[in-house]
Amino acid sequence: MPSPSSAYPQPSATDRCPCLSGSPFGECCARYLGGGADAPTAEQLMRSRYTAYAVGAREYLLATWHPSTRPADLELDPAVRWYRLDIDRRERGGPLDGDGLVEFRAYWRHDADRSDRGEQHETSRFLREGGRWRYVDAAD
């Protein structure tokens, strides 16, 4: 796995995956974050990117961002805890598709002020090029 900051929670292989797929971390997002496999669908890439935010895997986030929209750098706030992910909708994004959309809600709280909490609601666009899915941006 890319070297996440120790300021982030680090699940063991047998812990429930932060993306809430129902699978253990070692059988779910860990294999993508660790570089052992590429996410086979746009939804799985979105789930693994959510997990990367939850565990502080900045390098994975940058590596899975489409080059046309990827920022030069990415700063994560270790005081923000991502604790729940809901998938609202998906369009295309399967193993044989070239593009896909995933609408989701990701819930967070701030460790320093537990009353500071919120959600990120987004419909993300993904492209599959050279057999690899990449996050492009939030759809309009």
Rank of each mutant, 00 (worst) to 15 (best):
P4G: 03
P4H: 06
P4A: 12
P4F: 08
S5L: 08
S6C: 00
A7R: 13
Y8P: 03
Y8K: 01
Y8L: 00
P9N: 00
P9S: 03
Q10I: 00
P11L: 01
A13T: 08
A13W: 09
A13G: 09
T14V: 15
T14K: 13
T14C: 08
D15V: 08
R16G: 14
C17Q: 02
C17R: 02
C19K: 04
P24Q: 11
F25E: 09
F25Y: 15
G26P: 09
E27S: 12
E27Y: 05
E27I: 01
E27G: 02
C29W: 11
A30G: 03
A30I: 02
A30S: 13
R31Y: 03
R31K: 12
R31A: 14
Y32S: 01
L33Q: 08
G34Q: 06
G34H: 11
G34E: 07
D38S: 14
A39I: 05
P40H: 08
A42F: 12
E43R: 09
E43G: 07
L45S: 10
M46Y: 08
R47E: 11
Y50P: 09
A52P: 11
A52Y: 05
Y53P: 00
A54L: 09
V55K: 06
G56Q: 07
L61K: 09
L62A: 04
A63K: 13
A63W: 07
T64Y: 10
H66Y: 05
H66V: 04
P67W: 01
P67A: 02
S68K: 01
R70A: 12
P71M: 03
D73S: 15
L74E: 12
L74R: 14
E75W: 10
D77I: 06
D77L: 06
D77T: 06
D77P: 07
A79K: 14
A79F: 12
V80T: 14
V80A: 07
R81F: 11
W82I: 03
Y83N: 09
I87T: 12
I87M: 06
G94I: 01
P95V: 13
P95G: 06
L96P: 00
L96H: 13
L96Q: 15
D97Y: 03
D97C: 03
G98F: 05
G98Q: 13
D99G: 12
D99E: 15
G100F: 11
G100N: 09
L101P: 02
L101F: 12
V102C: 06
E103Y: 00
F104V: 01
R105I: 05
R109Q: 10
R109S: 07
R109V: 04
H110F: 10
D111T: 13
D111S: 13
A112T: 12
A112C: 02
A112H: 10
S115M: 10
G118S: 10
E119Q: 13
E119V: 14
Q120S: 10
E122K: 06
E122M: 06
T123L: 14
R125L: 13
F126W: 04
R128V: 00
R128G: 00
E129V: 11
G130Y: 01
G130S: 04
G131M: 02
G131I: 02
G131H: 03
R132L: 08
W133H: 00
Y135I: 00
Y135L: 04
V136M: 04
D137A: 14
A139L: 14
A139P: 03
D140P: 15
